[in-house]
Structures are given as structure tokens and as C-alpha cells.
Amino acid sequence: MRYPDPPSRGALPALKRWAWRLLPCLVPVLLAACAGSPHRQPTFRTSHSALADLPPRAPSAASAGEANDILFRAIGLVGTRYRWGGNTPAGGFDCSGLVDYIYRTAARIKLPRTSHDMATMGGRNVRRMTQLASGDLVFFDIDGAISHVGVYVGKGRFVHAPNSGGTVRLDDIDGPYWGDHFAYGKRVLD
């Protein structure tokens, strides 16, 4: 890389000439600072779920394509900001807004607006985490009532919009907090 010649001695005071000579040294430092790691937390990490070694499970052969579309849509929204009452990527999501958006845009299925209403709608309930299939809704009982929902993506992981953390994220369903509050899954695609 060729740097411009410094201005003549008489054109700048000594301090400016000295700074101009440092320019070739500062450019790589500034570029390295710009190329540093982002300030966001990593979105994906290795799962610590005990369910990670289970073979992937699709809801049924007939709905495997829809389940795939749902998974890609859900994972593609990881990192979107949380906003209570939100239901779009641009405006942010709360948990039920995220799940409804995923199903509506990936499978053309409109879901009720709240996690409680989603939990009481039709569909087969799945009581054991080991029986969950990709694309299942997963519900969590917090303080005695269903108040959180996410989408199971397989291998012990689910996508959801928790209010803590500030973004849509991928978590272990059997982790210390979520495993203690798991209520059941709901198979919508069969």
C-alpha cells in the first residue's frame, strides 16, 4: 500500500508533520479495530442438552416439508430484538408474536395471539421432551400458568423470544431454567 507524501516542512507545524509520519502506522491499527469482534453475544453455541444425541424427529412424512420451512424461518429470526406485543421482524417479537409469525409465514397457519390461547387450541399434546418433533410448539408453566411458548427445532433446542436477554434466541429445552418450567409440546403440523 502506498501512502501519500507528507506536506512540505514549511506547510505544517512540527507536531502536524510528526502526526503525518505516524499515519502509515495508525491505518493498520484503525483497520484492525474496525475488524474486531462484534459486541453481540454469539447466537449459536454447542448444545449442552441431554437430548442432543437423539435422532431428529419430524412430525410426519406429509408435513416434513412444512416443518423444515418452520425450522429455517425460526432459526433465521434468532437475534431479532424482543418487544412486548411485537409480531414482526422489523418491530421485534414477544414469544407468541414470534411463534405466530413463524407459522403464518412458513406454513400459512394462523395461530391464536397469546401463549395461553395457543396452549388450549387443538392439536396433539406431547408430554415428554424425548417425544418432541421439529416444529412442535413448546409451552412453559411459569408461576402456575402457561405464559411462554417457543418452537422446538430438534436436538434438544428451541427458538423463543424471552424478555430477558433482549433478542430471539436458541436455548436448550432441558436446561436448568426451561427444563424446570416445561409443561408440554403441541403438535400442530400432523
Rank of each mutant, 00 (worst) to 15 (best):
M1P: 12
R2A: 15
P4W: 04
P6A: 12
P7H: 08
P7T: 10
A11L: 15
L12T: 12
P13N: 12
P13H: 05
R17V: 06
W18V: 09
W20S: 11
R21K: 10
L22M: 14
C25W: 14
V29W: 10
V29K: 05
L30G: 15
C34S: 14
A35P: 00
G36H: 03
S37H: 08
Q41A: 15
P42Q: 12
T43R: 14
S49I: 07
D53H: 06
L54G: 04
P59I: 04
S63Q: 04
A64F: 05
G65T: 04
G65W: 01
D69G: 08
L71K: 04
F72Q: 07
I75Y: 06
G76V: 12
L77R: 00
V78M: 00
T80P: 03
W84C: 12
G86Q: 12
G86D: 11
G86L: 06
N87W: 01
T88K: 12
G92S: 01
S96P: 04
L98E: 05
D100P: 00
I102R: 00
R104I: 06
A106K: 02
A107Q: 05
R108I: 07
I109H: 04
I109A: 02
I109Y: 03
K110F: 08
T114L: 15
H116S: 14
T120K: 15
G123M: 14
G123D: 12
R124Y: 10
R128A: 09
M129S: 07
D136H: 13
V138C: 07
V138D: 10
V138P: 01
I142M: 10
I142L: 14
G144P: 13
A145N: 07
G156N: 01
F158I: 09
A161Y: 10
A161F: 10
N163H: 09
S164D: 15
G165F: 02
V168E: 08
D172Q: 04
D172I: 01
G179A: 10
G179H: 01
H181Q: 10
G185R: 12
R187C: 08
R187Q: 15
L189P: 07
D190R: 05
D190S: 10
